[in-house]
Design a binder for these strands. Structure first.
Length: 1023
RNA sequence: GGGCGAUUAGCUCAGUUGGUUAGAGCACUAGCUCGACAAGCUAGGGGUCACAAGUUCGAGUCUUGUAUCGCCCACCA
């Protein structure tokens, strides 16, 4: 069969599924993804932000990984030795919470009923399932990861890095154990970090209580008033605070308010005014009392804590704001972050009243054993009986909730492990400040520096079962000599005194210490595990084999770029920088590229916990990974997040159903149009899964789909026309005008694409290629070359340029659309195995390993591009006239162009193309051209195109158009004349700008004259 | 409360050092099955560039303020 016939049999629609199934295994089998250190080549390395194994990937991940793959594929083609390190994150608390919830739903068992070992086994099973799914999704996306190096943050290699890091930190005194107030999740019974807490407004109350002053002297108040939103915490009160200088504090508050008032808008003023008056009133009414209480506090006076009958001191502390409430505040150091600070400052006892499960402990006296809500109710009732409740207000409260269990957070005093941040944080700040790590876009550096600048110690222990167990053993009874004897000669064991608990802390590097490692004493293993960011913070070097000085570590580290989103700049990026510097002595990556976020149709970020994450799987199945990837790249611009409204496609009637907030995560949906139900990507129960599957799609991906299809058909055209292709050097003298033009454009676009990718400007690169491929290659080059492909004399050169241009285009597009470009590359290889202009070469076995095109500056030809611009203008004018006058597409027309000599010379060689592309025959061009007696005109820049109508004119339509045009011109001329009449403009604007404006005005006037003439002629024609 | 970003066509978004009366995709209208492509081709309609003031010969672009939306951080006994 001839090549042409074979090509004709290719489907007119790109078969994405076939290409994906063909080429991914092909690449993988040939080892293209794999990288080995090679000192002769320059490395280019990316470590994947390891996705959590909590669930399947969504479109946000699809974006993140597409962008990485684009960089990796592009750099690979540029000749770098590229490594893309894949893997997944155990995601400690998140994964454990998901699995615990699942077990509770299905078996009604808590983790304590199941036990540590069994639960961990269940989580491993979950991890295996989702890891496989996630890695499969990455493959479907086309990611060219080095799968042989796949890591998991909890695997043996990463575990070893964790042990070594912790050991070093412990040895250097950078990790310590201490009591701190933590966010306690009473459901999961673990501390959670600030980042795992969200606030929700709930309606609650504000209770005002009285504590009686002990032995009030004459003139002294008998009570102090305090207020709280959590009455039960009063059981843990250890003081009542009043401001040390209430007068000054009030004055300052007033001054501040006045300043605000001075700058406030009229709308805000009344409220501020009222506030100011209230403050003045307070100064009169409350201040004396506060001063008195302050003096009492200084004298060491006490109040009686009701219910528990405890004496607690009055203290003077700035935390008590005289402008708020009664001006006095109860202090519960063990259950409130601010009170905790007061407790530290004032040396107050810290009384913990809670058990880990959220019930009250023995410190709560008679309330012991009650859960918080009951305790709250009882405390209020009992205080009411004592007449100590002043009033109860309704109030909206921003209540902290755990992100994981969705239950309220209790501030809770617990022993935790911390990493000292001062030195480490500083090192990470310096790395960004001095440019060793470059954050793109640069505005994100600020948040990073601010956050690190606080240098808050990092709480790293979690009371979980899923994670890296902290390698610490407690020796409460042993003495320092026992330790020295037991671990004599071992440099893999270090110990440190824990004064607070009067015990030794022992850290072992890799060995597990047995209970009786110290003869005569019992060791207890720390049961807590490390924060998940501890192990992911090591990711860039742990995956490369650290602490071993592996060839990989030496060669690939520091990695080239980290591609991630802004949510985890502090949590993760900052930790990687400081731990990388600490462990390896160098930054983990040169660049950090922060990409946009994918938002759902309601502007909310996609996340697994919110449930609005859309699995890209439906999109890939429906329109292919290439379409998805190209669309995402096209949408990746610098400042704008990507809003991605999605729809369900009913499998019964193909209706598109909007994804609403309500239905967005439902396992089954009922079609509004046909009434039948279908399952969605969230289905998990057999009953739902049995239904036909409705895909989640978004019309926003049609851009990519249409583009891929356009590319596919351009390739089909080329293949159909490469019969008899003979490779050979190109003779520049034989190049037609369209050849020179497309080669010029190709050189420019190649440079633009490369430049855009270098600056992580994906959207620019995608746009440049989209416009070139569609509007230049397809719409003009292919159309213009058709004639020569039928002409035996011109065919060879035309084929060579066509094959070369397609070849280059496919290469440029490969990083974004890997599958279709490979498909085309392989097909092209069959008919044109050797390609290239000056000296054709055998094409690479795969476009994936083909060389990235270099912009050939010598091919850039401004003159030919100007010629094309003129040509395109005239062509558009002709088509415009044809369309407006309803001249049938096939009816030949004749036209003349009135223009200057230079333009005439440019247009001359284009004559045949007017015939082939607009069915129009030129009768003349130049300044001498006179309009035919019956003609329609259209202006294009400085030229005017006349089409000989010979009785075809639709007079009314044309008159309307010319009138409208005249109006537009009048406006434009007026604007220009105004500008040119402005003395300042003429005086100050650069000469070239003025000249440009003058020329433009002259042109506009000329256009107006011809429009008037045309209109006049139409009037006559009518009569 | 502090910080960051946004506001341009019905929708989703581009718009470079300030320089013709502002562009794309989708949607819409009209016409096209001509040997690459109807997921297409050709043409068209559609915008007071959020608002106000300022700088400038000239502002979508720079400055200030206002409004609205989103995100991050902190805090609210």
């Amino acid at each position: 069969m001839s090549i042409e016939l074979a090509a004709r049999e290719l489907p007119t629609q790109y078969d994405h599924e076939g290409a994906q199934n063909r080429w991914y295994p092909f690449w993988k089998e040939r080892g293209y993804f794999h990288s080995e250190p090679d000192p002769d080549r320059q490395p280019y390395t990316i470590v994947i932000p390891p996705p959590n194994v909590t669930g399947a990937l969504h479109l946000g991940h699809a974006l993140n990984n597409s962008l990485q793959d684009i960089l990796i594929r592009w750099r690979r083609m540029q000749g770098f030795n590229t490594l893309w390190m894949p893997g997944t994150d155990h995601a400690g608390i998140a994964t454990q919470a998901v699995v615990e919830r699942r077990i509770f739903e299905q078996e009604k068992k808590t983790r304590h009923q199941i036990g540590r070992q069994a639960l961990v086994e269940r989580i491993w099973a979950w991890k295996n399932e989702y890891e496989a799914r996630i890695l499969g999704q990455l493959e479907q996306l086309g990611c060219s990861c080095d799968w042989q190096r796949t890591r998991f943050t909890l695997d043996a290699v990463c575990a070893r890095a964790v042990r070594h890091t912790f050991f070093r930190l412990f040895k250097d005194g950078l990790v310590y154990r201490g009591k701190r107030l933590v966010n306690w999740d009473t459901a999961l019974q673990t501390a959670v970090s600030d980042d795992e807490v969200f606030h929700e407004t709930v309606s609650g109350h504000f209770w005002h209580f009285r504590y009686s002053v002990i032995d009030p002297r004459p003139g002294e108040p008998e009570f102090v008033s305090i207020a709280t939103t959590r009455p039960e915490t009063m059981l843990g009160d250890t003081a009542v605070a009043v401001h040390p200088d209430p007068a000054l504090a009030l004055a300052e508050a007033e001054a501040e308010l006045r300043e605000k008032l001075a700058q406030a808008s009229a709308k805000e003023k009344p409220a501020l005014q009222a506030e100011l008056e209230a403050l003045a009133e307070r100064r009169r009414a409350v201040l004396p009392l506060l001063v008195q209480l302050r003096d009492m506090a200084r004298a060491g006076r006490k109040v009686r804590l009701p219910l528990l009958d405890r004496e607690i001191p009055l203290v003077a502390d700035e935390w008590a704001k005289p402008q708020l409430g009664s001006g006095c505040v109860k202090i519960t150091p063990a259950h409130d972050p601010n009170d905790y600070l007061v407790g530290q400052r004032q040396n107050l006892p810290m009384i913990n009243i809670l058990n880990p499960d959220g019930t009250l402990n023995e410190n709560a006296g008679p309330y012991r054993g009650l859960a918080i809500p009951e305790a709250r109710q009882r405390v209020v009732e009992d205080l009411e009986k004592l007449g100590l409740v002043e009033k109860i207000e309704d109030r909206e409260i921003e209540l902290a909730h755990s992100d994981r269990s969705k239950t309220p957070i209790e501030p809770y005093l617990a022993d935790q492990w911390f990493v000292k941040m001062d030195r480490l944080a500083q090192s990470a700040m310096d790395a960004v400040t001095d440019g060793r790590v470059k954050i793109v876009p640069p505005r994100y550096a600020r948040g990073y520096l601010d956050w690190l600048g606080e240098k808050r110690d990092w709480p790293v222990s979690r009371q979980l079962w899923w994670g890296h167990q902290i390698p610490i053993w407690y020796a409460p009874t042993a003495g320092v000599d026992d330790l020295a004897r037991a671990f004599a000669g071992r440099d893999d064991v270090v110990w440190r005194r824990d004064e607070e608990h009067d015990q030794w802390l022992i850290c072992a590097l890799e060995a597990e210490l047995s209970e009786d490692a110290i003869p005569g004493h019992k060791l207890a293993r720390e049961v807590d595990v490390l924060d998940t960011w501890f192990s992911s913070g090591l990711w860039p070097h742990s995956t490369l084999g650290w602490p071993e000085p592996t060839p990989e570590l030496r060669y690939y580290y520091p990695t080239s770029v980290l591609v991630t989103n802004r949510d985890i700049i502090t949590l993760w990026v900052a930790r990687m920088v400081l731990l990388g510097l600490y462990n390896v002595g160098d930054v983990p990556f040169r660049d950090v590229y922060i990409h946009p976020k994918i938002l759902d149709g309601y502007g909310e970020g996609m996340s697994k916990s919110k449930g609005n994450g859309v699995d890209p799987l439906d999109v890939i199945e429906k329109i292919g990974a290439d379409s998805l990837r190209f669309s995402l790249a096209y949408l990746t611009t610098e400042t704008q997040d990507v809003r991605m409204p999605v729809e369900f496609e009913c499998p019964h009637c193909q209706a598109l159903l909007e994804q609403t907030k309500k239905n967005r995560m439902l396992p089954r949906v009922e079609c509004k149009k046909c009434g039948q139900s279908f399952s969605t990507q969230w289905a998990s129960k057999p009953l739902d899964l049995a239904l036909p599957r409705g895909a989640v799609v978004s019309e926003r991906f049609e851009l990519g789909r249409n583009f891929c299809n356009k590319l596919w058909n351009a390739a089909r055209f080329a293949l159909m026309n490469l019969e008899g292709y003979v490779p050979g050097p190109l003779d520049d003298d034989e190049l037609a005008v369209e050849d020179r033009w497309i080669l010029s454009r190709l050189a420019t676009v190649t440079a633009q694409t490369t430049e855009a990718l270098e600056g992580y400007r994906y959207g620019d690169a995608a746009r440049a290629l989209y416009d070139f491929a569609w509007n230049e290659f397809c719409s003009f080059y292919v159309e213009m070359v058709k004639g020569r492909l039928q002409d035996p004399a011109a065919r060879t050169t035309a084929q060579r340029v066509l094959a070369h241009t397609l070849d280059a285009l496919v290469r440029l597009l490969h990083p974004m659309v890997p599958f279709i470009t490979e498909e085309v590359w392989q097909l092209l290889g069959q008919v044109a195995g050797e390609r290239g202009l000056a000296k054709p070469d055998r094409a690479a076995d795969s476009v994936m390993i083909a060389a990235w095109p270099e912009a050939d500056g010598k091919r850039q030809d401004p003159q030919i591009e100007t010629r094309f611009a003129r040509f395109q203008e005239v062509l558009k004018a002709l088509r415009d006239i044809r369309s407006r006058q309803n001249i049938p597409p096939k009816k030949p027309i004749e036209f003349a162009v009135c223009c200057d000599e230079a333009t005439a010379r440019l247009l001359g060689p284009m004559e045949p193309y007017f015939a082939s592309m607009a069915g129009a025959k030129a009768t003349g061009w130049g300044p001498q051209v006179k309009p035919p007696p019956s003609s329609i005109s259209s202006r294009a820049g400085s030229t005017e195109v006349f089409v000989d109508m010979a009785g075809l004119v639709d007079v009314d339509a044309e008159k309307a158009r010319q009138t409208k045009e005249l109006k537009r011109l009048a406006g434009a001329i007026a604007a220009k004349e105004r500008q040119l009449a402005n003395e300042n403009f003429v005086k100050r604007a650069p000469a070239e700008v003025i000249e440009k404006e003058r020329t433009a005005l002259a042109q506009l006037k000329q256009s107006r004259a011809s429009a008037e003439a045309a209109l006049a002629k139409l009037q006559t024609a009518r009569e």
